[in-house]
């Protein structure tokens, strides 16, 4: 494909897909090892009441109030999950289950009771996002990347997602050592003076921010899949956390690129007509990668690689 076609039509959605996938996969590694991977699922449900609430407050469908509402709801949910987990002394999965179903149901009630008939709060949008529509029509080719006039009309989702990814990377790098030790051995981490409660909360809030930003751009299917599939597949490839992170980033990028291309051209190659949902295809590809690594990955056994290695 020439730059004239690729840059305006495919470059920005692909980049947004990649940024979203990596931003979710990075914290996903730690959440997975902490048996909290369901948090992605939880967050993508609890944003509904946040979005409805933001709409009721402002009366308009606009990105920023909705993202703020979603982020607020996610943080409320995270704090509630932590509180229920600690006060109720139950496992995190159960606490998440209680909170996200309740808040999601509350969001549905709120939506039903309020007068939103005049506007279109689109459930499908929430699920699939609108990755394909995030095109950059002002671009004429690769040279547009250096053209300030064209750059002004980049889809706003791109810089927003890039900034989110940067934030996630910073958090991971800065607290790398603390995250590693408190995920492996929380008690030991505390004796070193690491405030594991705060760090755990910070991790979940980072995940929530990534989820909300990604949710806005690419929908909740990708969010849910990217928190779990690339990190889980990466775990099958290696027995070192450092390498697992690298593999998970690779798998996230691979899922985003391959999924986007397959969604756009796969049906054509098969003789079909229309393209299929990119978000759905990206999530599916990540699931297939997980299936393949689960079958053939070198470190898929519970007790690691064979003793001879």
């Amino acid at each position: 494909m020439s730059g004239e076609e690729f840059v305006p039509l495919s470059l920005t959605p692909m980049l947004i897909g990649i940024f979203a996938a990596v931003a979710c996969a990075l914290p996903g590694n730690f959440l997975l090892l902490r048996r909290q991977a369901l948090i992605g699922d939880a967050i993508s449900h609890v944003v509904l009441p946040g979005i409805v609430f933001a709409f009721l407050m402002t009366g308009v469908i606009a990105t920023w109030p909705m993202m703020l509402g979603a982020a607020g709801a996610a943080i409320v949910a995270v704090v509630m999950i932590e509180a229920i987990r600690r006060l109720g002394r139950i496992e995190p999965g159960a606490a998440m289950g209680v909170v996200f179903t309740t808040m999601f149901a509350g969001g549905v009630l709120l939506l039903e009771q309020s007068d939103t008939s005049a506007v279109h709060l689109d459930v499908e949008h929430a699920l699939y996002g609108n990755l394909e529509s995030l095109i950059w029509l002002d671009a004429t080719g690769w040279s547009s990347l250096l053209d300030p006039e064209a750059l002004r009309y980049l889809p706003t989702e791109l810089p927003r997602m890039a900034l989110t990814l940067l934030g996630v990377c910073l958090f991971t790098a800065l607290f790398w050592r603390a995250l590693k030790i408190s995920t492996f051995d929380e008690g030991f981490a505390r004796t070193m003076g690491i405030r594991t409660n705060l760090l755990g909360l910070g991790l979940v809030i980072t995940a929530a921010v990534a989820a909300v930003a990604a949710f806005d751009a690419v929908g909740s299917i990708i969010v849910i899949a990217m928190f779990i599939c690339p990190p889980a597949a990466a775990r099958m490839m290696t027995n070192r956390l450092e390498a697992q992170i690298a593999w998970s980033v690779l798998f996230a990028v691979l899922s985003a690129v391959l999924g986007y291309v397959l969604a756009g051209f796969g049906p054509l190659w098969l003789g079909g007509g229309d393209a299929v949902s990119a978000a759905g295809m990206i999530a599916t590809v990540s699931g297939v990668i997980l299936a393949i690594t689960a079958r053939f990955g070198p470190c898929r056994g519970r007790s690691g690689v064979p003793a001879t290695v």
Partner: peptide, 13 residues
């Protein structure tokens, strides 16, 4: 700590 208090499947050497 008690040996059983951590997950020995954690990816580390």
């Amino acid at each position: 700590p008690q040996r059983a208090s951590v997950d020995w499947d954690f990816p580390t050497r």
